[in-house]
């Protein structure tokens, strides 16, 4: 009967082990790992794409770096995971990545049903259409009967269907998950139209098109696409740090702090600046990070204006205007909540 009791003990152990394994909180996991795992795109110029040396660059990438600075003090402590539009949410839900910074539109169902929280918007965008110039199309209203290339599992795909339904027009979608494939389908003429966020179109036209002059972006913007870093429900402290890391870049621009004048700002008498750079302590402790966190973000990554200009601004192939992404004081929508 000895062996029987061994078996019984084994079964009991198996049952005991079946208690659900509680995944460590995201913030603890990041600290323990010494690295932030950030979900990015498969390569969107200006937002997230590896450069010639294989290092990831772009506006989305810079916000991954800002969060890494806030938590770990070092912008290089990020591992980038390239995800397709369709893979990104399962990757975040399952814990494969700590956060997404991947031109992801904040929406009600994603916030609720998908179980995500959105950080402040890092880029206000809207969906547009690009067509080959030789088609002679001037407006999206002339697109009845067109074949449209679009990525699956995006808000773009849904807006596209909504827009054509509202305009009582017909279209034929060509839907391929892999970005390279869908782009080559458009450039080879499989589709008449390529649709995605206007910034993505600018990036596609400027960087990927064999000849940018052959393509035009139509004037209609058919949707609101507030692109924001995304975290999953369940770790509010981590979500707070992501949120305030984004605000820090905007607040710095509002206060006139940039990576260039940061050292002088340490001597500033302005109480708001003193609080921001950590000369007056408090913010860091409240967030549970180093008091120099905001200072370090600006030093290593830069303020919002610097991030924008470096990646997608006038000096880049994308040549985007600040537009909605300018500070509220200059007619844009970027507005940081108070740092106090």
């Amino acid at each position: 009967m000895n062996k029987l009791s061994v078996l019984a003990a084994g079964a009991a152990l198996a049952v005991a082990a079946a208690a659900p394994a509680q995944a460590g909180k995201t913030l603890d996991a990041v600290k323990q790992r010494g690295q932030l795992i950030c979900g990015v795109s498969q390569g969107t110029a200006g937002f997230s794409r590896p450069n010639n040396q294989g290092a990831w660059e772009g506006l989305d990438v810079d916000f991954c770096r800002a969060v890494a600075v806030a938590i770990l003090g070092d912008a290089s402590k990020v591992r980038y995971v390239s995800t397709t539009a369709a893979q990104r949410f399962p990757a975040l839900q399952s814990g494969e990545v700590d956060m997404l910074s991947r031109t992801t539109t904040a929406t009600l169902t994603r916030d609720t049903v998908n179980g995500f929280n959105f950080a402040p918007v890092t880029f206000y965008d809207g969906q547009g259409f690009m067509v080959p110039k030789k088609l002679g199309v001037k407006s999206a209203k002339e697109l009845n009967g067109a074949t449209v290339c679009v990525s699956p599992g995006t808000t773009t795909e849904l807006n596209l269907a909504d827009y054509f339904r509202a305009q009582k027009m017909q279209f034929k979608p060509v839907v391929i998950e892999k970005v390279d494939e869908i782009r080559s389908a458009y450039f080879s003429g499989r589709c008449d139209v390529y649709t995605t966020d206007a910034s993505g179109l600018a990036s596609l036209r400027a960087v990927d098109a064999p000849n940018p002059e052959d393509h035009v972006i139509l004037p209609e913007i058919i949707s609101k696409e507030p692109l924001a870093p995304t975290v999953r429900h369940g770790d509010e402290e981590f979500a707070d740090i992501v949120r305030w890391s984004v605000y820090a870049t905007i607040e710095a621009e509002e206060l006139g702090i940039s990576s260039k004048n940061l050292e002088q700002m340490l001597k500033s008498e302005d109480p708001a600046i003193k609080r921001f750079v950590g000369v007056t302590p408090g913010n860091g402790k409240a967030l549970g990070v180093d008091e120099k966190w905001a200072y370090n973000i600006i030093k290593q990554v830069g303020n919002y204006g610097e991030i924008f200009e470096r990646n997608v601004g006038k000096g880049t192939p994308l040549k985007l205007e600040r537009g909605l992404n300018d500070l509220w004081t200059r007619g844009g929508l970027q507005y940081a909540q108070p740092f106090r």
Partner: peptide, 10 residues
């Protein structure tokens, strides 16, 4: 896959 993505119900 598209449905999974739009609904989040993997």
């Amino acid at each position: 896959n598209t449905a999974i993505n739009q609904t989040g119900q993997a």
